[in-house]
Simulated scan of single mutants.
Amino acid sequence: MSQNNDMPGSPESKRHKPNTDVVEVDKTENKKIRKTGKRFLLKHTFKNILGLEVGKNVYSKKEEHFGVQWYFCIEHAPEDFLIVLYCSWPKSIGESTIKEYFEFKFGANTGDTTSKKFIATFRNNNGSDSNGFQMKWSKLESDFVEDGKLKVELNAEVLESTGLFGPRLRNFDETTKEVSDLILVVNGEKFYVSKFYLSSQSDYFRALFLRGYSESSMPEIKLEGIDADDFQHFLVLLYGEKVLDEITVEGILLIADMYNTPVAIRQCEDFLLDVSKKTLKKKFQMAIRYNLEKLKTKILADVKTISDIREIAWEEEVDDLEPSIISTLLKKAISDKQSCSCSHSLHSIV
């Protein structure tokens, strides 16, 4: 097993110091968390984990979600193990913070799982920050390791952020009140908008405003489960401004998909097809999550070899794919094995 004291792009971690910005969450507090829908999942299986020497670390793979990189590591302290979640910002981002809810799940020998839930604030300190917790190494050995493997799953949701985005290209505040007939409230921020224009762009808003629902006569409507910055970017895109970039696109796409906004969805998909430098794996994840058929079709058409398959779907994630996609990838893997003397087993792919 690869053992490292530090990982490229991460701070040195000879001994992770618990961050005071991390707070464990109980069931009661969990219900009070204001959600944004900006969820993501990280999975990793650490092999031969019991062979990890004291003072050494092992890392999961890095994944980009909502414009920043995320990964976690296991550290073997003298009597404990530490699990640490890292956030790594693009070089173009200056001083910024991300408040996040996250839940670590550990696979146990019985097939059950044990989880820990936290809220933490990540601060952009020279490009990265980390938060984590510790547990007795003996508990890891007895409860979580099976056949020398430790399966870890992280469910996370970005709750709020500061400093990630540049100046706003268009205002939807009280200065636009005279040309608006509705106020939409997102996480306490008011957006002054036109019912007619939103209805022309979104099936959701068309139904809400024009089909006799009680909200259609209300001067102010509260929108739940979304982020105010993402909604701002969504509106800017609808009004024709060039707001799409590597950091904003996923948040805009989340809103556009939620409110069934075809023009915005198409623009996001075209950006991912023609402009974006995101990894093939990330594009594939977004194509599946937001039903981007053109993007998904192009990616699958470009997949030819087992190596290509590994690039878009890691072993831990195969069970989460649609049966039709698994079937397509299996056929491509079989074709690749028949066309070359490849020693990879199909079991390791699917």
Results as ranks from 00 to 15, higher is better:
153 E>A: 04
162 T>P: 06
180 S>P: 01
191 F>H: 07
179 V>D: 14
197 Y>F: 12
173 D>V: 02
174 E>L: 14
153 E>C: 09
191 F>W: 09
145 V>W: 06
138 S>M: 12
193 V>M: 05
190 K>A: 04
190 K>Y: 05
202 S>T: 14
156 A>K: 15
193 V>D: 01
140 L>V: 07
162 T>I: 01
175 T>N: 09
148 G>S: 10
171 N>P: 04
174 E>G: 04
152 V>W: 06
152 V>Y: 10
139 K>T: 12
183 I>C: 00
184 L>T: 14
167 P>R: 05
159 L>C: 07
142 S>Y: 03
201 Q>A: 02
146 E>G: 05
177 K>T: 02
141 E>T: 13
185 V>H: 00
148 G>I: 15
146 E>Y: 08
183 I>A: 01
174 E>C: 07
172 F>L: 03
202 S>H: 11
163 G>T: 06
152 V>H: 06
156 A>M: 14
178 E>D: 10
147 D>R: 04
146 E>I: 11
178 E>F: 14
142 S>G: 03
140 L>D: 01
191 F>E: 07
157 E>H: 12
179 V>L: 08
140 L>R: 09
138 S>T: 14
171 N>F: 04
182 L>G: 00
147 D>F: 11
155 N>S: 06
165 F>P: 02
195 K>F: 05
173 D>N: 06
142 S>A: 07
195 K>W: 08
164 L>V: 06
150 L>A: 15
188 G>E: 04
191 F>N: 05
165 F>M: 10
142 S>D: 13
157 E>L: 14
172 F>P: 00
167 P>A: 11
149 K>W: 13
141 E>N: 10
190 K>R: 09
186 V>M: 02
138 S>N: 07
199 S>E: 07
173 D>L: 02
179 V>R: 11
153 E>W: 09
187 N>V: 05
151 K>Q: 12
161 S>E: 08
188 G>F: 07
163 G>C: 06
155 N>E: 09
188 G>H: 02
168 R>W: 03
193 V>C: 08
189 E>Y: 02
163 G>E: 07
162 T>Q: 03
148 G>N: 14
186 V>L: 03
181 D>M: 15
185 V>Y: 01
164 L>D: 02
153 E>H: 05
183 I>H: 00
194 S>P: 05
165 F>L: 12
197 Y>K: 05
159 L>H: 12
196 F>I: 12
180 S>I: 06
178 E>Y: 13
147 D>S: 12
185 V>S: 00
155 N>I: 08
182 L>H: 00
